[in-house]
C-alpha cells in the first residue's frame, strides 16, 4: 500500500509543481525563532554548485534530485552488503552475518522502491570501489589481508555508510516536504538507516548514538567528514545543553540526543570517495 501511494505521487504534474520549494524552505527557516535567534542551518542541495563527481547526475528539481541522491546512496549500500555477505569475511561471526543479512535485505528493498518511484528519472548505479584505490580491503580480495583486518574494515565502512545515510536523508527532508507521500516514505527509510547504524556501532563496541563529532574507536580518519558537525548543540536557536531546571546536561549527552544533517553536496562528496568515474 505504501509503495502504490508512493508511486502515485510521481505523476509528471506533481513533479513539475515543486519548482519553488527550495526557496519556500529557505523562507520558512527564518520563522522558527520568534524570540530566539535562529542558528545558521546548512540546508539541502546547492543545485549545480560545486560539481562533485556524482552531483552532475542529479536533476535540479528538488524532489527528483533528492531521490536520485538517495538512490545513489542506496546503490552503494546495497552493493556493499551484497559483496560483504559473498566475501566470507563475516563467516566467523553468526551475529555479524545475521545483522548484515537483515541490512542487506532492507537496502535492496530501498533500491527497488526508489527506482520504482523515480521511473524514467531513475539514475544508473555508479561503479563502486570499496577499496578506495587499494586503501582498504574489506572483502579480503588480497591474499595478504588477514580476516581480522578485513572484518574490522567491513564493519568500519558499514558504520560510515549508515551514519552518512541517516544524515543525508535528513538533509533532504526540506527538499521533499512539498510532497507528503514522498516525505513520509523518506522518513520511513531514514529511521531504518538509523536502526542499522545503531546496531553496526554496537557490533563495533560503540554506543548506538554519536557523541560530539567523534567518529569512534577504530574508525579510519578518512571517515571524519561523516561526523563533522555532529557536535552541534544549537537546535532551533537554543543551546540544548542549557535546558531544564535540574543538573545541566553534558555537551556529550546533548549532542547525542540530536543527529545532524549532511547537505546534498556533503553527502555526495563522501559517497564520491567510493565511486569510480
Amino acid at each position: 500500500m505504501n509503495l502504490i501511494k508512493f508511486l502515485d505521487e510521481f505523476t509528471t504534474e506533481s513533479l513539475n509543481k515543486k519548482g519553488a520549494s527550495r526557496r519556500d524552505a529557505f523562507n520558512t527557516l527564518s520563522s522558527l525563532g520568534k524570540k530566539a535567534a535562529i542558528a545558521a542551518v546548512p540546508f539541502g542541495m546547492a543545485a549545480g554548485a560545486n560539481k562533485a563527481k556524482a552531483a552532475t547526475m542529479y536533476q535540479e528539481n528538488d524532489v527528483v534530485g533528492a531521490l536520485q541522491l538517495a538512490l545513489t546512496l542506496e546503490y552503494l549500500e546495497a552493493e556493499f552488503y551484497m559483496k560483504a555477505l559473498d566475501s566470507g569475511v563475516l563467516g566467523n561471526s553468526p551475529r555479524a552475518e545475521a545483522i548484515y543479512q537483515q541490512i542487506s535485505k532492507h537496502e535492496d528493498a530501498h533500491v527497488a522502491l526508489l527506482q520504482g518511484a523515480l521511473g524514467s528519472n531513475s539514475v544508473d548505479s555508479p561503479e563502486f570501489d570499496f577499496t578506495v584505490q587499494g586503501t582498504f580491503d574489506p572483502f579480503m580480495e588480497d591474499a595478504n589481508t588477514t580476516q581480522e583486518t578485513a572484518y574490522a574494515q567491513l564493519l568500519a565502512l558499514a558504520q560510515a555508510f549508515e551514519d552518512t545515510g541517516v544524515r543525508a536523508y535528513k538533509g533532504q527532508a526540506g527538499n521533499v516536504m512539498t510532497d507528503a507521500g514522498v516525505l513520509t516514505t523518506a522518513l520511513q527509510i531514514h529511521s531504518v538507516e538509523a536502526r542499522h547504524t545503531s546496531e553496526i556501532r554496537r557490533l563495533r563496541g560503540l554506543d548506538g548514538w554519536i557523541t560530539l563529532a567523534e567518529r569512534g574507536m577504530g574508525m579510519p580518519e578518512a571517515t571524519q567528514p561523516v561526523y563533522n558537525g555532529e557536535d552541534n548543540l544549537m537546535q532551533g536557536g537554543v543551546d540544548v545543553s542549557t535546558l531544564g531546571n535540574g543538573e545541566p546536561f553534558t555537551a556529550e549527552a546533548s549532542s547525542q540526543a540530536y543527529d545532524e544533517i549532511l547537505t546534498g553536496d556533503e553527502a555526495t562528496t563522501i559517497a564520491s570517495l567510493f565511486i569510480v568515474e
Binding site: 519556500d24 524552505a25 529557505f26 520558512t28 527557516l29 520563522s31 522558527l32 535562529i38 542551518v41 540546508f43 541517516v166 536523508y169 535528513k170 527532508a173 526540506g174 516536504m177 507528503a180 516525505l183 513520509t184 522518513l187 531514514h190 529511521s191 531504518v192 538507516e193 538509523a194 536502526r195 542499522h196 547504524t197 545503531s198 546496531e199 554496537r202 548506538g208 548514538w209 537546535q235 532551533g236 547525542q256 540526543a257 540530536y258 543527529d259 545532524e260 544533517i261
Partner: peptide
C-alpha cells in the same frame, strides 16, 4: 507527523530527533 509540519526548520529538528529514537529502539 512529518507530513503535518509546515515549517522546514521544525521538520529538520523532528528528523534530528526521530533518528535518535530509532537508534534507541534498535539498541
Amino acid at each position: 507527523a512529518g507530513k503535518i509540519i509546515e515549517t522546514a526548520a521544525y521538520l529538520v529538528i523532528a528528523g534530528k530527533i526521530v533518528s535518535v529514537e530509532a537508534r534507541h529502539a534498535a539498541a
